[in-house]
Design a protein around this nucleic acid. Structure first.
Length: 231
DNA sequence: GCGACAG
DNA sequence: ATCTTGTCGC
């Protein structure tokens, strides 16, 4: 994988790019049918900043059975420093490259992070959706800069994720007795549908199976790269 | 101005 | 994100 020649290199440029692409986000749309053969994907990345290496993984799952159908990875140089609010510029070159390796287009891509729940309403899930045209949702592990009440105790209970009173996502309880996850719209989907998908993909654990599989795969890809290379 | 701040 | 084994508990 290589970083696109026109990829932003600094904060000012990145902010302008978010401003330019944000109007293209579509904030409504359906959840896929849960019938065998419908495919969903999970993407995630792992880093070795010392060696300037990022490894991305894309994993295709059957939405109805959660069986893994296909896995791809992409390894390359880190494209951008980590700056809160600009995470997409760090992760997306590797993620889009990994997605290109899939032989089938998924109905939905589940991202590790946020979509509309973002200071400028353009987190990495929305950004990925606009760049690829794919339907995307964001499922994050921490509330970032937003507020929320503690959701009810049972699986499926939720509360709004708020940015100064505006709803930007949901804190969703995927498992009893465990902290909620934070769901937001990425692209071409509604918030209720995004939450529905998240619950369907997390029948046993806190995080969606898509995220769990992609997380473990990108770590393995990074370890393999870090051990083998020297190029 | 400084700190907090998805991963 | 990353540093990281066993261990307490359902």
């Amino acid at each position: 994988m290589s970083v696109p020649p026109d990829w932003p290199t600094g904060e000012t440029e990145a902010l302008a790019e978010q401003e330019r692409l944000r109007p293209q986000v579509v904030t409504e749309g359906p959840a896929p049918d849960r019938t065998p053969g419908v495919l969903v994907a999970g993407v995630d990345v792992a880093y070795d900043d010392e060696k300037d290496v990022v490894a991305a993984a894309a994993v295709l799952l059957d939405y109805a059975t959660l069986e893994v159908v296909e896995e791809t990875t992409a390894v390359g140089p880190v494209a951008f420093p980590y700056l809160p609010g600009l995470l997409a510029f760090r992760e997306l070159p590797a993620v889009t490259e990994a997605l290109r390796g899939l032989t089938v287009r998924p109905e939905v891509v589940v991202c590790d992070g946020y979509g509309l729940a973002h200071p400028r309403r353009f987190g990495l899930a929305s950004h990925l959706g606009v760049l690829t045209g794919l339907r995307t949702i964001g499922v994050a592990k921490t509330p970032f800069v937003f507020e929320h009440r503690e959701p009810g105790p049972r699986r499926g209970d939720w509360s709004p994720l708020l940015d100064r009173g505006e709803t930007v996502g949901r804190a969703v309880r995927t498992r009893e007795g465990v902290k909620p996850v934070f769901v937001s719209v990425g692209h071409r989907i509604g918030l209720t549908e995004a939450a529905e998908i998240t619950l369907a993909l997390a029948p046993h654990y806190r995080l969606p199976e898509t995220t769990r599989r992609a997380d473990s795969l990108c770590r393995r890809a990074l370890a393999a790269e870090t051990a083998a290379d020297v190029q």
